[in-house]
Design a protein around this nucleic acid. Structure first.
Lengths: 226, 226
DNA sequence: CCACCCGGTATTGTATACAATGTGCAACGG
DNA sequence: CCGTTGCACATTGTATACAATACCGGGTGG
């Protein structure tokens, strides 16, 4: 945990700041699908050179936020309803796998720790506090059940909304709490299937909620049928 | 298809060449888990500056090949048996989802095209030819059923073995052929569950085969129980 | 009138140079 | 003798400068 704290305290590099900046622009709807990211422009606006901008763009490309084509530039990716659904379906699959393993391998102490964290989630008064506890829950699950590689896969496909998720998605907190509660119940019953289903539905519901929030804010054009 | 061809012909940038070089080093066992990648050293060896090396490292970090820590350097990630299993489990989940959708939405023409491709796979005499057809199959499936975002997720978590997969994994071709055949059968029967299962098992078997190949070549230390 | 070619210009890709950070060792004090 | 502090070095992070490539307009020939 101290390592986590240190990492958090370490001020992020220019590249990471730039990446965060662009993510926020996309989330806010100031950059929309197909828009081009000019390296010079971004560098000037943020007062850095093009190197960190390029590195941020590479990161965002790998994360799926933009498409980076050689010698042509970076264009913000599609954020249609289908994309968001796919994104959360995918996260649901991965977290479902993690949940399955947790149900199979968690010790009594692990379960006790999860229960404590769930209580902390429910007790949180501020959304920031809630988000922090939530991260600890996620971290715990990954530590219990995921290899570094699987963890990396989840980090590579991060929540569409990073910071301020629970501010942005009003029903997000409730969905998360009931999802984790269902997971805990399933783990206690040692039911891998139920644990899998619990997190899959949780992510599915989060996806719907995010989609609703984006639609409301105008980032996503309208409901699109698959 | 012409777009794909063009992309393929476009000679890759220095960054991409460096990334490929490092991937090969890791696959070949010349770089093992925990080894540090010094930017200067790699740049000198390949006769490029550190900029493309850095960009390659960022890519590899996002892909899970290395862990890149700020101001500390990049270290090659863990490639224990568990990691490889996780990697293929994950790909199995994603491809299973794709298969499910293909079974639900494919037209008669799509099915016919898949059948033709399967015949071409079986008819291929050279492994290179087989690999090319295989890529067309994958591309077709993704085009039928996956949003750009899901496709990106699959490209971000590429097969552990890129080029020369079928040379490296002796049983790979047979696994792939029977897997695609099973998929085709499931799609014809319009069974999403069977399609899902077909690709999940295919990837599971590929994972086992890759693990065996790596173990044989000494890249993976030994069988590790979870 | 349309298709093609060909420079000029804008933008990206990479090399070089410098700044900032982390690491290891040695000297010092307890 | 052990822990700590501070400096020198190695390495990474970023800025600047230059090279390579793609886009866009006019011009030319058919």
């Amino acid at each position: 945990m101290s390592a986590t704290t240190q990492r958090r305290l370490k001020r992020e590099s220019s590249s990471e700041q730039v990446a965060g900046h662009i993510r926020r622009l996309i989330m806010a709807g100031e950059l929309i699908t197909g828009d081009r990211l000019r390296q010079d422009e971004i560098a000037d606006q943020l007062g850095v050179s093009r190197i960190p901008v390029r590195e941020a763009i590479i990161t965002l490309d790998r994360e799926g936020w933009v498409n980076f084509e050689s010698h042509r530039g970076a264009f913000v990716a599609s954020f249609a309803a289908d994309d968001i659904r796919d994104h959360y379906d995918l996260r649901g699959l991965i977290f479902g796998l993690v949940a399955r393993r947790v149900a199979e391998t968690a010790t009594a102490d692990d379960i006790k720790a999860l229960a404590l964290l769930l209580r902390a989630m429910r007790a949180a008064t501020e959304l920031d506090e809630f988000a922090a506890v939530n991260e600890r829950v996620i971290g715990r699950l990954l530590k219990l059940a995921a290899s570094p590689r699987l963890t990396a896969a989840l980090l590579v496909t991060p929540a569409v909304v990073h910071e301020g998720f629970f501010e942005f998605v009003p029903t997000g907190r409730a969905i998360q709490e009931t999802g984790i509660a269902a997971l805990l119940k399933a783990v206690r019953a040692r039911s891998a299937d139920a644990a899998d289903a619990a997190l899959r539905t949780m992510l599915r519901r989060q996806g719907d909620a995010v989609l609703a929030a984006f639609t409301a804010s105008g980032v996503v054009a309208a409901a699109g049928t698959r």
